[in-house]
Structure formats: C-alpha cells, structure tokens
Design a protein around this nucleic acid. Structure first.
Length: 811
DNA sequence: ACCGCGTACGAACCA
DNA sequence: CGTACGCGGT
C-alpha cells in the first residue's frame, strides 16, 4: 500500500472531524483579532507574507489561520503543511491549535520542523538518493569524527584542514543546496579543490553508512523533488496549504524546499520579521524574505504592527537602533500601552561589577522598589551576546544565593553519557552502525586502543564487512591478542544478544520506522524496550563505569542515564526513540521554583520578560568582533538586529549596560561602549550612575551630572562620560561614516582623542581595583604599572588617578 | 594502553 | 582563564 492509498482512508475519517469542530466552536477565534491579524487570517488563498514585528501576536494569527482553514473546510488537517524551525515552536503551535479546536485539532501530521518533516518525506523515498529507508541521522559529533577520518586517510595536514572548518564548509554548501557536483568552481578553487573533493568523499561515505547529516535531510528532499517530478507532484497535491514560521531564518535549501512544494497551488503563507533575522552565520538568507514578492508575484503583504508586549519607550529605543539598518521591509511598531520607564543605561568599571550591580538590581526589583510593582524572578532575564558572559553572573549569583537558570547550554542529548548510551542502543538496533561501534568499542575501557581499532577497521575494509563483523573475523583469525581479545569478544557477543532481543520482541522488524500517516495509530504499550535498554547499559559495563568514577560529575551522569531510560517509556521501541531523539531538543525542565533566567540573545528570540537586562554592550563583544571581521557591514547589521531582538524582549523595564574593562581570554582589556549605544534615541533613555565609585566616573554619568567633586576628578570623570565617549560622539558626526566593515580597533586604541597619558614614568598612581602602584612604562595612553599588591598590569591612563588624589577618595 | 603535562587556541546555535 | 589535543613517560 502506498502512502497515497493510506490517504484515502484518512480522508474518510477526517472530514467529519473538522465539521464537528466548526459546529462546536462557532469561530470565536476571529473576534479577538485586530484588523491586521484578521486580514492575515482571512487571506487564505494565494501567497501571503505576514510581516509580524516583535510581540504583535504572530503565533496567534498563525494558529487562527490554521483553525480558519479547517473551519471553512478549505483543507483537512493532514493537508496543511506547517513548518517551524524549532521543536518548541512546533509544539507551541500544536498546543494552541489543540486548545482552540479540542480533539478535532489532533492529527496534523505535517506540522513540525523542517528537519522532522524532511525525515518523514525522506524515509518514503530514501532509495531515490541511494539510501535505505532505515538511514540513521548523524549529529555534529559524528560528522566531525567522520571528516577526521577522511582527512587522515588523505594524509593531509589536519592543522591546515581542521575538521571543524571542513564541516563548516560542507554545511555551508548544503545550506545553499549545493551537492558536490554543483559546488561552483570559484568556491572550490579557493580551497584548492580539497574541500570539494572531501565533500564528495564524505557524501559517499555517508551513503555507505546509510546515514544523513542534518543538512542532508533537506538537501536530499530537494534533490528528490527536483529529479522526480511525479513525487513532487504528489506532495504538491497533498499539501494544499503551506504555512511557514520565522521565514526570515530560512536558508537557500529550505527556500527551495518550500518553493518547490508551493509552486503549483501557491497557497503559501510565510510569517516572519526581517528585523529579527539573526541566523545569517548559519546560512539563513534574509534575502528570502526581502524578495518574497518577486518570488510570488501578486503576493499579499500584511504587516502586524500593533505591539502587545512592550512600553512605548522600549519600542522607541528598539526602533531607533534598528533604523540604522538598510534594506529593511520596514515596519512601525506601535502600542496602546502606557509610557512606562525609559530604557536604562549604565556603565560599570568591569564585568564583575556589572554582574554585582545586576544581581542587586534584580533583588531590589523582586522586592519592589522605587514605586514599581515587584517582579518575580521568573519575570526577569539576563540576555548576553556570547555564552561565556554567563559565567560572571553565575559566579555572582551563586555567592549571593540568587536562584537562576541557564537556558540553552549543552542539550540533553549532546551530553557525553547520553551519546554513549545512545550509541549502544544504535548498535543493538542495527549492529552495522559503524560510527556507534567506534564510539563505544572502548567505552568503558576494554584495552582496545588506537592500534586495535585500526586493525579492526583494516580487516573490515579489506573484506567489505561492518566493524562488528570485522572484529569477529579478526578474533577468529587470531589477529588480535591478549586480554583485549576477550573483552572485544564479549562486546561483540553483547551486541548480538541485544540485537536478537529486539528481533524477538518485534518478530517482523520493519526495515524502517515509517511514520504512520494515520495520526491515531495505536501506540505499542509494550515496554520491553525500556527493560532492554537497562540491560544493555548494565551488561556493557557502562553503568558501572560511572558508578566507579570518583569525579564529582559522575553522579549527575548516572542521573541523566536514568532520565534517558525514563524517556524511553514514551516511545514504543528503541528504534522509535532513536528516530526522534536525533531531532528533538527538549531542555525545558519544567521547574516550578522562582529563578532569574540567563541566556544568549539567540536563545531569547520568541521569549518575553517584564524585566530584561542586556549586559556587555561593548564594541568587539557586541557587536562581536568576529561577526564584523567575517561579514563586515552585513555582520554589523545582523548584530544590530540582535540588539533589536534583545530590547524587544522586555515588556516593562529594559536595562542596557557595559563595562570599561573586561577579561578576554584571561587578559584585562579596556572596552569601548557599543556603537549601538550611540543609536539609542536619547529621549527614551535614562542614564544611571553606578553606585560606589565617585558617581561612576568610570563609564557612565549623565551629562551635567556630578557637581561637588574636585575639579580634577570631575574632569576625568566627564571624559569617561558616556555622552562624551567616542560612542556618543559618533552620533554627532554621522556623516563621517567610515567603512563600517573596517573593524574598529577597540582593543588597542586610545580612548582619549589625544593619545597621551598625562602621567610620567615613576609616578605613583592609584587604581580602584588594583590599589597603589608606580608607572614603569608608557605607551600612548596606556601605562605599564607595577602595583604594590596586584603585580604588573597594562592600564589605560583614564582608569588610574594620581596617587595623591586617590588618597583622598573614600573607599 | 593509559595518564599527565605542556602548548595552542579561542567563545554564537538549532535540527 | 578554559578546554582540546599532542607529546612523552610509565
């Protein structure tokens, strides 16, 4: 029976469902939409671009649209293709549709991520791209190990060709839907064609392994659609309406995937916000959304601009920043909300002080301060540019006992113990999984080192065997000696035994786990696979390996293994589990306790909090130097969108901060305020003065602030004043727009415009953090100072003061 | 085969 | 300041 015959059966069941839904719920979903949302919901046919600004009720409109399609009988649940990027977004959409429709909203088999939907499609046509339907999905780790092997096989310098770099190259090509044959020679030549050659080898190897990496899932689908018009036509008929979330994040391959599927009926609705395109570095093409109207002539463009999330000051600040980007489709967010607080800006001496201040501020806000209503910890978040910034906050919050949660971080299935355990499961399911074999053959230690593994590989390769069989053959021929041999034999026998157990449990082992088309296929209630998983982990010695491990993290790893086994209960077989786990990111441990959230700006997209802190707004950190170096103006624009995303996460209160000094790779560096700080419209910003330090001369002080200080100090303080900083100054002489792509020398450059320190060799100076010291070298505005207590440091002159003045400062 | 030390390098993120 | 890897010693 083909899937298309299944379909007939499904249709018979599906029609009454949607009619029942309509009867039960007479379209209340249209009533609470604003006019733009309603327009977006009701424009069902033909291409539609829904430009949905931050906080404008995009998901609401999207789900209402699905409900509307079903209610009007335009499509049945299985005829709607709804694509998201993350499992979380998919789940959210599913939940919302379910909430609106009740049971009638169940059974939307084609609502999911690009990757999960692609797997579903690919399993049905795997042979068209030279795979078996049971192909496995490799993650980044496997991918790297594979590439490493190919590099070594070629005997080329892996210093010049780091696997990571090749992986990046290949991913980039796949993102652009380029098979090895299609990589433009200009692309390949730049790397002496080594890159393209390895790419081709890599693809061959994947086919031999019957495996796909993440990029392949989409690429293969596109290839099938392109080369098999009959298959494509079936899917085009099948998916009568297509909806895409976060369209600004699509890469070329995803774009082709969509366009191929949509081009027949053109009922495609893409939802996105060009101002929130922040994944360019992983291949997203903001161009896709910019040229939607060209791709789909006659497309209806609907803007959702009424914001339901943030106060006017916050929106104005965000708008001010994003306005500096060129090539925008353009939206003007507005709100009916009350004015609220201005965006707050504060400078700090260094990153630790920044963390300290934010910690105190969070506690104050939690208690309720300055007449603001208290905001619980759950309502507060710290959004950083790069994950290493999190550390300062974690350190600080641990010492003051402020509960926090880190969102993102290493995902569950990426942890070592989980990946090891899964490799065992993979071997049990398919003993020919060579990558899994390699991963765990010596985990726990079985006395099988590099040399042993190499001879197994040689044996396997020579006889066209899988690694397990190669190992067996080697053992039989006595090609491997000593105590490793016994352990290897036990390992192979184990694999055999576990595999048999699976076979016995399911006498008819399907070659692949093909998703049932009928959504309500009864789940297998037999939990034998859970027990089997435990047995595997026990017998392999993997559990005892961690039990015997004395390191502090061993306990946590055992916990994770338990959690893994528990997770198995929700699936009906090991295969089914492996199938999903490769695509699932489930890190949302539902935790009821009140905690402040710490996450990257990227992880924050789509979230919102009453109170948001945005630390580390310093040139080089944010915008990140790397982004500027690699992508020039484009990079800066993307960073600016990231700033926009950050600010628009805040509902009530947004606090931006920067530090004058920061440890970078263990070295102290002086930092300049981010250029994005220049772009904040002053009318919507309140500049705060950090406590403690002479009114905050070291970073931020309001203009005109700070009467009552000695003139010398005040002068030094104002020099560091934000509004007087090079940052604000750039605002004034905008016409002087130098090439932005030219990285500013934030690190080694003078902060003063006259590059002289004002200090003399041998002079005694005072520094707030390092104490007293003596100038032993001068280099422009930087001083080499030998501190009495803190050793020798290089310090920018404005951060120290003559010792006699320092003496008077009350610390 | 495994362990410990020294050196080099450097940090986004989701499937 | 970390971590990841390569080296040499045991």
């Amino acid at each position: 029976m083909t899937p298309w015959e299944d379909n007939e059966a499904f249709e018979a069941a599906a029609v009454p469902l949607s009619q029942r839904a309509l009867a039960q719920r007479p379209a209340p979903y249209l009533d609470d939409l604003n006019p733009a949302q309603r327009e977006a919901v009701e424009a069902l046919d033909g291409p539609v671009l829904m430009l949905a600004g931050a906080g404008t009720g995009k998901t609401k409109a999207l789900t209402a649209r699905i409900v509307h399609l079903l209610a009007l009988g335009k499509a049945r649940p299985h005829e709607i293709l709804a694509v998201t990027f993350t499992n979380k977004a998919a789940r959210e959409m599913k939940d919302r549709v379910l909430r609106m429709l009740g049971p009638a909203g169940e059974g939307m088999p084609w609502m999911g991520t690009f990757h999960s939907l692609s797997v579903k499609i690919l399993r049905r046509h795997a042979e068209l791209v030279g795979l078996k339907p049971s192909f496995t999905i490799l993650d980044t780790d496997d991918q790297l190990r594979l590439l490493k092997q190919l590099i070594q096989a070629r005997n080329i310098d892996d210093k010049r060709w780091p696997p990571r770099m090749l992986a990046g190259l290949i991913d980039g090509w796949k993102n652009r839907a380029l098979t090895p044959a299609r990589v433009p020679s200009s692309d390949g030549a730049a790397y002496n064609n080594v890159g393209t050659e390895i790419y081709a080898e890599y693809q061959d190897r994947l086919r031999t392994l019957n495996a796909c990496d993440f990029g392949d899932l989409l690429l293969h689908c596109v290839e099938i659609f392109k080369t098999h018009p009959d298959v494509l036509a079936q899917y085009q008929r099948w998916f009568r309406y297509i909806l895409v979330d976060e369209y600004q994040d699509t890469n070329v391959c995803q774009y082709l995937w969509l366009r191929l599927l949509a081009q027949a009926h053109r009922n495609i609705c893409c939802v996105g916000d060009d101002d929130q395109s922040i994944y360019g570095w992983r291949g997203a093409e903001v161009g896709n959304i910019l040229r939607f109207e060209k791709d789909f002539p006659g497309a209806k463009v609907i803007r959702l601009e009424q914001n339901y999330r943030s106060t006017p000051h916050i929106l104005a600040a965000a708008s001010g920043v994003i306005a500096a980007n060129a090539n925008r489709l353009g939206k003007t967010l507005w709100t009916e909300a009350e004015t609220g607080e201005k965006v707050r800006l504060i400078g700090h001496w260094d990153g630790e002080e920044e963390a300290r201040w934010i910690g105190e501020e969070i506690e104050a806000i939690q208690r309720g301060t300055r007449g603001w209503a208290p905001v619980s910890l759950n309502g507060q978040a710290i959004l950083v540019r790069a994950s290493h910034q999190m550390r300062a906050f974690e350190d600080r919050f641990l010492t003051i006992g402020l509960p926090y949660r880190v969102i993102g971080g290493p995902r569950f299935y990426e942890r070592q113990e989980i990946r090891d355990a899964m490799a065992y499961f993979r071997l049990a399911v398919s003993p020919d999984d060579d990558l899994a074999f390699e991963r765990v053959v010596n985990v726990p230690k079985r006395g099988l080192g590099d040399k042993a593994v190499q001879s197994i590989q040689r044996e396997a390769r020579a006889n066209g065997l899988t690694l397990v069989d190669g190992a067996r053959s080697l053992l039989a021929g006595g090609g491997i000696g000593g105590k490793g041999a016994n352990q290897l034999r036990a390992f192979c026998d184990g694999i055999d035994r576990w595999h048999m157990a699976i076979r016995d449990a399911r006498p008819v082992v399907a070659d692949a786990v093909i998703e049932p088309l009928l959504p309500d296929t009864p789940p297998n209630s037999d939990l034998g696979h859970v027990r089997l998983a435990e047995v595997i982990l026990e017998e392999s010695g993997y559990v005892s390996m961690w039990q015997n491990d004395k390191t502090p993290e061993a306990e946590g790893r055992l916990e994770n293994l338990k959690e893994l086994v528990k997770a198995l209960e929700q699936f009906d077989s090991l295969q089914g589990f492996l199938e999903h786990v490769a695509l699932i990111m489930d890190n949302d441990s539902e935790d009821a306790t009140e905690k402040v959230s710490i996450m990257t700006l990227h992880a924050a997209k789509g979230l919102e909090f009453p109170v948001v802190f945005l630390p580390g707004w310093e040139d080089g950190l944010f915008p990140s130097q790397r982004s500027m170096d690699e992508s020039g103006l484009k990079g800066i624009e993307e960073e600016r969108r990231l700033a926009y995303v950050g600010i628009t996460r805040a509902e009530e209160l947004c606090t931006i901060s920067f530090a004058s000094n920061r440890r970078v790779y263990g070295q102290w560096q002086s930092q300049l305020p981010s250029r994005f700080i220049d772009e904040l419209p002053q009318a919507h910003v309140e500049v705060l003065t950090p406590p403690g330090l002479m009114g905050g001369g070291y970073g931020a002080a309001a203009p005109g602030f700070g009467g009552g200080f000695g003139s010398t100090i005040e002068e030094r303080a104002t020099r560091a004043d934000v509004y007087n900083s090079p940052g604000w100054r750039r605002l004034q002489d905008r016409q002087g727009q130098r090439s932005v792509s030219q990285p500013r020398e934030a690190r080694h450059v003078t902060i003063d415009h006259q590059a002289e320190s004002g200090y003399a060799l041998g002079e005694r100076v005072f520094h707030v953090k390092f104490g007293y010291g003596r100038v032993i070298g001068i280099e422009g505005d930087k001083l080499d100072i030998r501190f009495d207590k803190a050793g020798e440091k290089k310090i920018v002159a404005r951060f120290v003061m003559p010792a006699d003045i320092g003496d008077e400062v009350p610390f």
